[in-house]
Amino acid sequence: MLLNKIIREKINSKLMLTFTILSCLLVVLIFFGLYYKSSPLFTNNSIKDLLFSSEWFPLKGKFGLLPFISSTIWVTLISVIIAIPFSLLTAIYLTEYADKRFVRMINPLIDILAGLPSVIFGIWGVIMIVPFIKNHIAPALGISSGGYCLLAGGIVLAVMILPVIIHVVSEVFRAIPQDLKNASLSLGATQWQTIKYVVIRKSMPGIIAAIVLGLSRAFGETLAVLMVVGNVVKMPHSVFDPAYPLPALIANNYGEMLSIPLYDSALMFSALILFVIVLIFNVISRIILVRIERSLGIG
């Protein structure tokens, strides 16, 4: 009976360990799975061509991914550039200035924004952002644009990553000891000077980690961007040009990828690029955040 209990305990423990290790191995598994599926591509195309050529002619076996890669980078950068001021200002306001009751009112709203599915953001982009760019922003600048463009993708993405950045930055701000702020305040600094010179400076690694996390979120976002970005295979030259990011390429062509040779490999290679870049971003930001947690003795 007792022996039974011990043995069962051992088995349970090993079983749990197996589950844990297996799920962690998923990271490795996805990498090799995608690599394996994209490897046929490498016999006819060099990695350099795949990444830096803009010749995208699947029927001729040419798979230059540059237009997609640069679209992805552009749309991500635009979204982060828009999101950074809004999220930082909001996080500062909510942690340093706003009344507790106000914060308790706003936080659930930010949570709801974070929980909305990407297709909803996409629909919103189609209903509002695209027409607004087409009818107001572009004409105001003397440009003609169909509205389905990098800027539309960037704006929609920015709203999607705002909650992520606000959440992480607020946590970092809250971890700054009050006594450190007091040190600055007691010298006669205003609250804003204290925030500018002490809080932000001390939180800099955390702010960077939050932005990188937002970047990686934006990088892989598919449907919302796909719906508003235009999906034209062309190197974009301005924010009013349509673009074709990597996730959209994968999502749009899953149906026909089996009929053209190597097309499926090219799509899997796109997924691999996304995976690797997001992985790097994530690891960087997590390592920074864990360091902060440890140095402040929390977590």
Binding site: S23, C24, G220, T222, A271, L279, N282
Partner: peptide, 11 residues
């Protein structure tokens, strides 16, 4: 798990 959390669903 932080990494898995960050992997885009398209991947």
């Amino acid at each position: 798990f932080d990494i898995l959390w960050g992997i885009p669903s398209i991947v």
